[in-house]
C-alpha cells in the first residue's frame, strides 16, 4: 500500500483526511489496474467489431469485387429493409423465439419444481441429469434431433406412425411447419435446463414460512403458487426470460445443421452469415448484423423498461 502516513496525533484532522483520500485513491487505482484489462478486452472484442460493422454497412462492398467498393450512405439498410427475405427471417426468428421461450418458461418451471421437491435420494441424480442437455454441444444436439426425425435414419416415423399425419414417409424437413417444429423441439430440449436451474435458484429463495402461513390459512396449491411462490421469485423469472429471449433470438446452430435455411426456415443470424460468409457481400451482411444488434438492444430495453427487470439486483449488485 502507498499509505505510509499514519496520523501521529488525533488533532491533525487534515492529515487524517489526506491519508484517507490517499488510501481511497490508491484503492481506486488498484481497482482499475485489476479490472481494467478485462474491461478493455471486452470492449475490444465487441464494441470495436460493431463499430466496424456499422462502418462497413455504409459501403457497397463485395469481396469478390473489391475495386467496386463504394460509399452509399444507408443504401444497404434500404436494400435489406425493403426485401421480403429480411422480414421473412425476422418473422421466423420471432416465431421460434416466442414459442421456445413460452414453452421453456412452463417446462422449466415444472422441472424446477420437480427438482425442488424431489425425494432426497433422487435429487442429486436429477440435478446431474438436467445438466447434460445444457453441457452438450448445440451442434451435437442438433444432429441428434435431426437424425431422429430424418426420413432415412430416424426412428420417430416408425415409433409414432399411429399418430395422424405421421407415417413411414413423413418428411419432417420437407416443409416449413414440420422443420420449424423439430428446430424448436431441439432448442427447447437443449436450453430448458438453463432456465430451470435459474428458476430453481429463485424457488430456493421463496421464504418457506410464507408457504406454511398460506397453507395454514387454507390456501390451495394453486393459490400458494400464484400468490406466494411466483411473486416472490419474480426477479429470477424475469432474468431467466430475458436471457433466454435474447439467446433464442440469435438461434443459428440448429437451423444451420437441420435445414440450412431451406423451406423458409432462415433466421436472422443465418441470413447475416449467408450474406457475409457465403455471398461475401460485406456491406449487406454488415447491415444485417447491425440490424440484428439493434433488435437485441430493443428487446433488452423492452424487458428492462416494460417488465422492470432489475438486472443490478439480479446480479447481487445494488
Amino acid at each position: 500500500m502507498t499509505t505510509t502516513r499514519v496520523p501521529d496525533s488525533a488533532a491533525e484532522q487534515e492529515a487524517v483526511a489526506a491519508a484517507l483520500s490517499d488510501r481511497a485513491r490508491a484503492e481506486r487505482r488498484l481497482g482499475w489496474w485489476l479490472a481494467g484489462p478485462a474491461f478493455v478486452v471486452m470492449l475490444l472484442v465487441t464494441a470495436y467489431p460493431i463499430v466496424q460493422a456499422f462502418y462497413d454497412s455504409l459501403f457497397q462492398f463485395r469481396l469478390t469485387d473489391p475495386d467496386a467498393r463504394e460509399f452509399n450512405w444507408l443504401g444497404n439498410y434500404w436494400v435489406v429493409l425493403t426485401d421480403s427475405v429480411w422480414w421473412q427471417a425476422v418473422g421466423v426468428t420471432v416465431l421460434i423465439t416466442a414459442i421456445t421461450v413460452a414453452v421453456e418458461a412452463v417446462l422449466g418451471f415444472a422441472l424446477a419444481l420437480v427438482m425442488h421437491r424431489a425425494l432426497r435420494t433422487l435429487r442429486p441424480v436429477l440435478r446431474t441429469a438436467i445438466l447434460v442437455p445444457y453441457a452438450i454441444i448445440t451442434v451435437v444436439s442438433a444432429f441428434a434431433w435431426f437424425y431422429a426425425f430424418d426420413i432415412s435414419t430416424g426412428f420417430v416415423n416408425s415409433w409414432f406412425d399411429w399418430l395422424p399425419g405421421i407415417g413411414a414417409d413423413t418428411n419432417w424437413f420437407g416443409e416449413f411447419s414440420t422443420s420449424v417444429t423439430v428446430i424448436i423441439a431441439s432448442e427447447i430440449w437443449k436450453t430448458t435446463p438453463f432456465i430451470s436451474l435459474l428458476l430453481l435458484a429463485g424457488l430456493a429463495q421463496v421464504p418457506e414460512d410464507l408457504q406454511e402461513a398460506a397453507k395454514v390459512d387454507g390456501a390451495t396449491w394453486w393459490q400458494r403458487m400464484y400468490k406466494v411462490t411466483i411473486p416472490n421469485m419474480k426477479a429470477a423469472i424475469m432474468v431467466a426470460l430475458l436471457f433466454r429471449t435474447l439467446d433464442a433470438f440469435r438461434i443459428f446452430d440448429n437451423v444451420f445443421i437441420m435445414t440450412q435455411g431451406s423451406n423458409n426456415t432462415e433466421v436472422v443470424s443465418f441470413l447475416a452469415y449467408r450474406q457475409t460468409i457465403s455471398r461475401l457481400e460485406i456491406g449487406l451482411g454488415s447491415a444485417v448484423s447491425v440490424l440484428l444488434f439493434l433488435c437485441v438492444v430493443l428487446i433488452s430495453f423492452t424487458f428492462i423498461k416494460l417488465f422492470k427487470v432489475d438486472l443490478a439486483s439480479a446480479r447481487g449488485e445494488r
Binding site: A35, L43, T46, P49, F252, S286, L292, R315, E317
Partner: peptide, 28 residues
C-alpha cells in the same frame, strides 16, 4: 475494492454476454 466504474464493468459484461455473436463475425 471501492472504485468508481464497478457498475460500468458489470453492465459491460452483461451487454457483451447478450451480444449477437454473428454481429461480431461479419466485421471480423
Amino acid at each position: 475494492l471501492d472504485f468508481p466504474g464497478k457498475r460500468v464493468i458489470l453492465t459491460t459484461a452483461l451487454a457483451v454476454a447478450i451480444f449477437p455473436v454473428i454481429s461480431i463475425v461479419t466485421p471480423l
